[in-house]
Design a protein around this nucleic acid. Structure first.
Lengths: 197, 197
DNA sequence: CCACGATGAGACAATCATGTCTCACATGCG
DNA sequence: CGCATGTGAGACATGATTGTCTCATCGTGG
């Protein structure tokens, strides 16, 4: 994260700018550089000094999102214990970044032809591997492919983040809503073997 | 759908333009009026004659999406039979419009402050009512609110539509993927009471 | 105190999408 | 045939955003 050396005076906190931009673009994905700058409390000129342009800013946000995803994946220890519990840990760990993820998820839609950042492929693989482990485990059903389960997780994360932002659901229910639906589904199970922590 | 009278010469098919625009904007939500016109095989001038501007075009697409949703809701006969089966019918009926829905779903994100089209509220209510019926039925679990289940359905529809468009999953699995995940979840159920058609 | 570095404010040109307009062409109808 | 209507092509002005630049200011370290 920091192979660059800060000079003695670095009033503008790059990370703060990125997180503010993430929060703003999550709500309004078409926000202008000027709006981003104002939201971060800096001038457009300074914003432009730190990020060559809008593309650079979005790419920096993408790197941030990838880093946070990787961190969440590490923190969730996907290889340990039941796969279902690992999914719970993962969703809980990824929750703070869900808004940013949702923004990047829809943003990538625009790069249709172009290659996507290789970091996403790695994250996809790690999550898909978790679902695959659960299938080989016997925990997860095998008629839903790991790729689809991964996509579904992204979709639920985005929907939940948006629903929370809109105030339609409570923020405290975030992890529970996603995990329970993703793992258990909407159907009421007569005697479902629970694997709570 | 047609209280307007076409004059003797109406070379441009409004519906065809709308569907072409929907298909294009689904893939590239920032497409230009010029791109939309080219995709529809008409000139930008003509496109502008039929839709006063980009806003008008998007609003027309929104009306189209609402109409298709309502049609799917009607076709699915949400009040008949098991709620789970109604969900299956609904997803199957809504599949052709999933791409358009995904576009509008993310597009509405931009109208943060403004009021959304009242049509969506009605659709939300009908879907939420279905989930509520399933809960009162005893079919669906009650710890996931109908509002969240509705949002989750939207998210899964969008994710699936995008995954299909990207070629990551097979188009034929669309309904199965969504319904099975939404209703049954990822966990393998030892002896789950099936209610297939 | 002085100098350096970072910032804010603003001017500026360039670019792009939009919206409007005109004109020429084609097609169907009387 | 002649007229009306819809269309395509393109010009044009407008507004918004972007990217670059300059200049004044402020704070900190030497």
């Amino acid at each position: 994260m920091s192979h660059m050396r800060y000079s003695r005076l670095m009033a503008v906190d790059r990370d703060h700018v990125l997180r503010t931009a993430a929060a703003l673009l999550t709500r309004k994905s078409t926000a202008t550089m000027d709006e981003v700058a104002k939201a971060a409390g800096i001038s457009r000129a300074t914003l432009h000094r730190h990020f060559a342009g809008r593309d650079a800013l979005v790419r920096a946000l993408e790197s941030l999102g990838i880093a946070e995803c990787e961190a969440a994946l590490d923190a969730a220890r996907l290889d340990e214990g039941a796969a279902g519990d690992a999914v719970r840990r993962l969703v809980g760990a990824i929750e703070p970044a869900a808004g940013l993820l949702a923004f990047l998820y829809t943003e990538n839609q625009l790069f249709e032809g172009e290659q996507q950042n290789a970091g996403w492929a790695r994250i996809d693989d790690r999550i898909a591997a978790l679902f695959r482990r659960g299938q080989q485990n016997g925990e997860f059903r095998i008629d839903l492919s790991p790729v689809w389960l991964t996509e579904a997780l992204y979709g639920l994360l985005g929907s939940a983040a948006w629903a929370v932002a809109e105030g339609r659901v409570a923020r405290n229910d975030f992890t529970h809503m996603i995990v329970e639906l993703l793992l258990g589904g909407a159907l009421r199970q007569p005697a479902r073997p629970r694997e709570e922590s």
